[in-house]
């Protein structure tokens, strides 16, 4: 493992700019989503710079869409905060699996590299960093990837917000836009491994919404459904322990 790195440093060409160029694929993917977010945020009552501010600080697509839907439904900041936590806790897993690329990182690098970790940048970084030799270079490449994606997300949110300002507010279709977005995300992520959790959450949410005032039904149904789903998986998995305890997928 070690002598390859020390022998000859021919990876000078793989630095910040290399990462930045790699981020183009993410930028293309982000563009329509960021513009859509900007448009919807302004349609749901935010100003274009408030939308931009949210993209700048939060920088997590799905939870931003969820937040403007919840703001629209009248949820409290605390409710939105808790919902954001359970949506974005997955970044913890991604972060955990990126960390081994940077054993010698300084505090500043830790703070900086963590900022740009999203679903998309995680996937790209994991793919690209494997082929970059030397931790110094890997840091710069990741910074480049993250920067390109981040700048695209924030600037195109603002652009979308400006577009949204000029669109006719009367069109009733806009009140369905976010639901449509979530439905499309659902069809993209439903699988044989998670559809039971989806159904449990759906039933619980409808029943609890009718029974409990406020938006707390969201969090209760999500935690219960994910908990039951995870418990079920662990239970099923434990039958196989002993046969195949060494290998993890």
């Amino acid at each position: 493992m070690s002598n390859k790195e020390n022998e000859f440093n021919h990876s000078i060409d793989k630095g910040f700019l290399y990462g930045l160029s790699q981020s183009l694929t993410i930028a293309i993917g982000y563009a329509p989503v960021a513009i859509t977010f900007g448009i919807l945020a302004t349609q749901f009552g935010l100003t274009f710079w408030e939308a931009g501010l949210m993209s700048f600080f939060v920088y997590a697509g799905a939870s931003q869409f969820i937040a403007i839907e919840m703001i629209h439904q009248g949820a409290t900041p605390l409710m939105i905060g808790v919902t954001t936590l359970i949506v974005n806790i997955r970044h913890f897993l991604m972060s955990l699996s990126v960390v081994p690329f940077f054993p010698e990182r300084s505090l500043l690098w830790s703070l900086g590299l963590a900022q740009g970790l999203t679903d998309e940048s995680f996937v790209l970084n994991t793919k690209v960093l494997k082929d970059v030799e030397g931790e110094e270079n890997r840091r710069r490449v990741m910074l480049g990837i993250n920067s390109g994606a981040f700048v695209t997300w924030v600037s195109l949110t603002i652009l979308g917000g400006l577009i949204g300002k000029w669109l006719p507010v009367q069109f009733s279709g806009f009140q369905f836009a976010l639901l449509a977005l979530f439905i499309i995300l659902t069809t993209m992520s439903l699988s044989r491994k998670n559809y039971m959790t989806y159904l449990i959450a759906a039933v619980l949410a409808v029943v609890l919404k009718l029974l409990i005032p406020g938006k707390i039904y969201l969090i209760i149904s999500v935690i219960l459904a994910a908990g039951i789903g995870a418990w079920w998986r662990v239970r099923k998995g434990s039958h196989r322990v002993g046969l195949n305890s060494q290998k993890s997928s």
Partner: peptide, 11 residues
């Protein structure tokens, strides 16, 4: 499983 559960509960 949280994301898929949340999509259900939101929609």
């Amino acid at each position: 499983l949280v994301p898929i559960a949340l999509l259900a509960a939101l929609v």
